[in-house]
Design a binder for these strands. Structure first.
Length: 270
DNA sequence: AACGCGCCCTGTCCGC
DNA sequence: TGCGGACAGGGCGCGT
């Protein structure tokens, strides 16, 4: 489900809704959601205060003193801040009971998501394996061009690899390549410098606009208050096979790359 | 090292 | 109305 804009929206919500809250009790309904030992997980979190919430790649990082609660939402994960009177939901996996009767609930239909607690040192080591943040100043056309030099995989598949550039998943990879006019089947190492520059601009534009619209809800995505994102209506090619390209009217094509659907305009993207 | 594939799991939708 | 198959925002571990 969630790519960078969706995770960023949830993180901003949570800083408004639960920063400073104390986690009084943890209920683990689905131990398979936790990486490592579920009892140790609950013990590490109980009684801690939520200092602040941040995002790295598609991970939600909750600072609890010197520890980090790291949450990856997989395909269908939601992280919800609920009031005392909110009814319980289906597929609740982990419940964090906060002070004042509020709760933060992790729910996940397919259970591809994972939660774990790491020391700040462990998290620092882990996050170094992740690629560059696409909305940072560090992410330039020059850097993108350099990073693509060593890979022969299709640029669309390349964009989704979190070891190079983070945060771009199946939806925004197709959308960014459409905006940049680049054929998703093109090999990563075939991008010219100007094309890399255009792709960098397209990635930043689409991610920024999607954040402004609070993310894309196809089916399962919800923000921390349980509301849908509004960007789905602004997607130009994703899930639009057979519909006319918004620029030239040519029917949008669907192909499969690395087992995932890719959508593109065969005329606009070269 | 880089790459491609299968797998984890539940729900929805479509064709027959 | 029922049933089987395809497909769905991600990531990991395997073999080559």
């Amino acid at each position: 489900m969630p790519e960078l804009p969706e995770v960023e929206t949830i993180v901003r919500d949570l800083n408004r809704l639960v920063e400073g809250a104390t986690i009084e009790r943890v209920e683990v309904e689905r131990p398979d959601l936790i990486r490592g030992d579920a009892d140790a997980f609950a013990r590490a979190i109980r009684g801690r205060t939520i200092d602040r919430i941040s995002r790295r790649a598609k991970n939600i990082v909750v600072a609890l003193g010197d520890d980090r609660l790291v949450i990856n939402l997989g395909m269908t994960g939601n992280l919800l801040a609920l009031g005392p009177d909110a009814p319980s939901l289906s597929h609740e996996g982990i419940r964090f009971h906060l002070d004042g009767g509020r709760r933060m609930v992790y729910r996940d239909i397919r259970r591809f998501g994972r939660l774990e607690v790491l020391s700040d040192n462990q998290w620092e080591t882990r996050q170094q394996q992740l690629g560059v943040e696409p909305l940072s100043d560090e992410f330039t056309g020059e850097l993108l061009h350099r990073l693509t030099r060593t890979s022969r995989v299709a640029i669309k598949t390349w964009l989704m690899d979190q070891r190079r550039v983070v945060g771009v998943g199946n939806i925004y990879a197709s959308e960014a390549l459409f905006r940049a006019g680049i054929d998703p089947r093109r090999r990563a190492n075939s991008l010219s410098r100007p094309r890399a520059q255009r792709l960098r601009e397209a990635i930043q534009a689409v991610l920024g606009e999607a954040i402004d619209f609070r993310g894309t809800t196809l089916l399962d995505y919800r923000d921390a208050s349980g509301e849908e994102g509004a960007f789905a209506g602004r997607l130009r090619v994703y899930d639009r096979a057979g519909q006319p390209c918004p620029v030239c009217g040519t029917p949008i094509r669907r192909i499969v790359q690395g087992g995932r659907s890719t959508f593109f305009c065969p005329r606009c993207q070269r």
